[in-house]
Design a protein around this nucleic acid. Structure first.
Length: 638
RNA sequence: GCCGGAAUAGCUCAGCUGGUAGAGCAACUGACUUGUAAUCAGUAGGUCACGGGUUCGACUCCUGUUUCCGGCACCA
């Protein structure tokens, strides 16, 4: 007999070799049904894996987050088994559970197409029906190597394990897979799943190695959950900024103008100007000085900064004219460094904060380009703060809080914060360890002191220094880097920047790079998706639409329209001779925040009847009242 | 850049095994003068992404290119 201790402290005796499933059944039949796996002494156990000694056992039920992961992982195995039956030459890479699903990487002569997915799914369902037991087996590394000798990918994975490590494999029917485990125990537990797509993926994520075929899928405990998830995927497609951006005439892309070179249409540019203005004022209040520098710079400038050597491949071609050589700038710090260096600086002048609306060009790989999210010409508000070492914490934090404010005003939410650090890669990061140690320590310290939660990411730093990256989750579920504060000791060296200290000697300033709300392009893609194209009034390209009931009311409507335009409201008047319902529908599909209907009643009362986008109620108010309402709305930014 | 898929009217899409294209919406014209999501009728609109090939004949089959989409890699 062995003794099992439950999370609530209760203990119970069981036969040696009892499985989590048995334990669940012994407590309640409902619990057995709900259980998916278990933590046995904090190790993930399959439902059918025997427990050989006294242990702490926590059953993982379907409502536990881990349960879905186990289910999806098991579904990946099921997928592999089905693929192997249909394409016997198939060899397998890795097949993990991921957020919202799973995938498996496959090597086979057969090119797997989207049309093949139903066939594979069908085979999977067949295996579910025959209720294959997913049997765990443990062996030495050497045995495992023998077992998988014809499986180059699995073999490679095993070879990387330490000598003497125990390897576990799982067998279900004729299919055997190398796997650490945590499985549902039997294929019959897998019921509600769908294969979603096929894609290519490099073996081990290494672009120098071969590409495998990857099948993505998703698996759930109930049909409702599966359906809900599929609906969510559909909803995300509806929110796609490329679709909305086209419908609402926000931006366009044209192969005639150039791949990845977006064109801002009047609607989009209006939103952008509002954002630019907002940021300009925000920065102005925080002591930033705005300036403007050219999109073209000498190659020498970027050689000095180090960007040219680091990012040569991601820059547009070098331009040569007579004896000068230029590049399209990929970023703006060198220009700002030069401005700093153009005058003698005293310690009293610091910090100096330069901000600029910068257009920059990067030769992004063609496959990376995506709508406004990833482009080759982008504009952003970029800032560089030149400070003394004793000012670092204050300046980094103030930049951080500025970012927080902007993200809040845009109705976005910080998902998490990353502290990006270097790793041992001397080619990727500048080699001065002392500078790195100091910079990384300061960043860590200030985050800790301020009680800001963050994840450390080694190997993710910029080549010149550590970064604090602010990650935002978009409405489509992507996590993107929205903002960044980077501490740089290197560029001031490279440009030999100095200021005169209290002691009368020259000192080296530090450089803090600050990206506020990504680029306008990317921000627009995020906002479009966030608001589903229905911009809040302060951002909306058209804030209100005046709709006269009939021609007779046109004069009144014209007068209103003029008044609103004078008040700096973005007003439009529908002058078409159409039915009221038709014009209203048009205003609605354009997602205009306020639609104003004016007819006999309004003319008589000097009033407007408005309806807010997304609301059902209509309100009749005087013109003055309406102005107060919309102006308040604009101030609220909601 | 890599793997796979796609490209038909301004937009959304149909077009079977090869016989040179069609709908809805939008646009334009006319009638209707309207009270909260589509009034009716008519007109016009396409080198079927581009180049080459197979064929008596290609939107359809083959091939190259371009762009887009799903991923991977990359992202100062």
């Amino acid at each position: 007999m062995i003794e099992i201790t439950f999370p609530d402290g209760n203990k119970k005796s069981y036969e040696k070799g009892v499985t989590p499933e048995d334990i669940a059944a012994s407590i309640a039949s409902g619990l057995k049904k709900k259980s998916v796996a278990a933590f046995v002494n904090d190790e993930l156990y399959d439902l059918n894996r025997p427990i050989e000694e006294d242990a702490n056992v926590e059953l993982i039920t379907k409502d536990n987050e881990k349960a879905l992961e186990v289910l999806n992982h098991s579904t990946a195995h099921l997928l592999a088994q089905a693929v192997k039956r249909l394409y016997p030459d198939a060899r397998f890479g890795v097949g993990p559970a991921i957020d919202e699903g799973f995938y498996y990487d496959i090597a086979t002569e057969h090119t797997i197409k989207e049309e093949d997915l139903p066939k594979i799914e069908q085979e999977m369902r067949r295996i579910v029906k025959t209720q294959e037991e997913m049997q765990r087996e443990e062996m030495t590394r050497e045995e495992a190597l023998k077992r998988f000798k014809d499986d180059p990918y699995k073999k490679e994975l095993i070879e990387e394990l330490d000598e003497g490590e125990t390897v576990s494999i799982y067998t279900q029917g004729e299919f055997v897979d190398l796997c650490r485990g945590g499985h549902v125990g039997n294929t019959r537990h897998i019921k509600h799943f769908k294969l979603l797509s096929v894609a290519g993926a490099y073996w081990r994520g290494d672009s120098d190695r071969e590409m495998l075929q990857r099948i993505y899928g998703t698996s759930w405990f109930t049909e409702e959950d599966l359906k809900k998830h599929l609906d969510l995927l559909k909803e995300r497609r509806e929110r796609d900024h490329r679709k909305l951006g086209k419908e609402l005439r926000i931006f366009m892309l044209s192969d005639k103008a150039g791949q990845g070179l977006p064109i801002w249409l009047p609607n989009g540019y209006t939103v952008r100007r509002v954002l630019e203005d907002y940021v300009y004022k925000l920065e102005k209040k925080r002591g930033y000085h705005h300036l403007s520098t050219p999109v073209l710079g000498t190659k020498q400038l970027y050689e000095t900064s180090g960007h040219f050597t680091h990012y040569r491949d991601d820059m547009f071609s070098v331009m040569e004219d007579e004896d000068e050589t230029f590049v399209l700038r990929p970023m703006s710090c060198p220009h700002h460094a030069i401005v700093f260096d153009s005058e003698l600086r005293s310690y009293r002048d610091l910090p100096i904060r330069y901000a600029e609306i910068v257009t920059q060009h990067r030769y992004e790989k063609s496959g990376a380009l995506t709508g406004l999210e990833r482009v080759r010409a982008m504009t952003l508000t970029d800032a560089h703060i030149f400070a003394r070492k004793d000012q670092i914490k204050e300046e980094v934090l103030s930049a951080f809080y500025l970012i927080q404010q902007a993200i809040h005003d845009l109705n976005l939410e910080i998902d998490y914060i990353e502290l990006a650090l270097r790793d041992g890669d001397k080619g990727k990061f500048h080699p001065d360890d002392a500078l790195w140690d100091e910079a990384e320590a300061v960043m860590r310290e200030l985050l800790d002191e301020e009680g800001i939660d963050y994840k450390e990411m080694t190997g993710e730093a910029a080549f010149y220094g550590p970064k604090i990256d602010i990650q935002v989750r978009t409405a489509l579920g992507h996590v993107i880097t929205m903002s960044t504060v980077q501490l740089d000791f290197l560029l001031p060296e490279r440009f030999d920047l100095t200021y005169i200290g209290k002691d009368g000697n020259k000192h080296r300033p530090v450089l803090i790079h600050r990206g506020l709300v990504s680029t306008w392009e990317r921000l627009m893609s995020i906002l479009l998706e966030q608001y589903k194209g229905a911009f809040p009034t302060w951002l909306a390209p058209v804030q209100l639409k005046i709709i006269p009931v009939a021609d007779a009311h046109m004069d009144y409507a014209e007068k209103l329209h003029e008044q609103f335009i004078d008040e700096d409201l973005r007003s439009e008047l529908d002058r078409r001779e159409e039915k009221l319902g038709y014009k209203i529908r048009d205003a609605q599909t354009k997602k205009i925040p306020y639609q104003l209907v004016v007819g006999d009643k309004e003319v008589e009362q000097n009033a407007v009847t408005y309806r807010k986008y997304g609301e059902k109620d209509q309100h009749t108010v005087t013109i003055e009242e309406f102005k107060t309402i919309i102006e308040q709305d604009i101030r609220d930014k909601t």
